[in-house]
């Protein structure tokens, strides 16, 4: 089955990004396809490459980057939601005059159309985090 995933909550405060990750991994290992993971609302913070948890804790952001690299998953951050919350790639940071960019490896910024398209293309769209 072809799944699309939407994640609406930030890591660490909420468990939903962890649950979404576990689901994604289980689905991939069972031979399903993950069409796209779309991060919206505070879920865009899953793409902050500056995330630096204590060493004995899971790194939610790095885990997504590794998943993208290993399985070629399309990780898309809503650009409008990301701008509100300070997540930017190098181009966006330069355009807005910020000193640094922080979009983590394996993620890309794009519009809400990517979420709608995922809903159209996938067999099931699952939403994690209210």
């Amino acid at each position: 089955m072809k799944f699309a995933i939407q994640i609406n909550q930030s890591p660490y405060t909420h468990q939903s990004p962890d649950t979404a990750y576990q689901f994604t991994l289980a689905a991939l290992k069972s031979g399903h396809e993950i069409y796209r993971i779309f991060f919206y609302h505070d879920g865009v913070l899953n793409g902050s490459g500056f995330t630096t948890p204590p060493q004995d804790e899971r790194n939610v952001v790095a885990r997504w980057s590794e998943l993208a690299e290993e399985y070629g998953i399309d990780l898309v951050i809503c650009i409008a939601a990301a701008q509100r919350r300070g997540i930017m790639d190098a181009d966006e940071a330069e355009r807005h005059g910020h000193a640094a960019s922080n979009l983590a490896a394996g993620f890309r910024l794009s519009g809400l159309g990517q979420l709608i398209e995922a809903g159209i293309e996938a067999d099931r769209l699952l939403v994690f985090g209210g």
């Binding site: 919206y40 609302h41 809400l112 159309g113």
Partner: peptide, 19 residues
């Protein structure tokens, strides 16, 4: 919360896809 506001943005995008 921003949910209602960002939901509206998603709705307008969805409508543009002619679903």
């Amino acid at each position: 919360t921003i949910h209602a506001h960002e939901a509206l943005e998603a709705i307008l995008t969805g409508a543009a896809f002619e679903q």
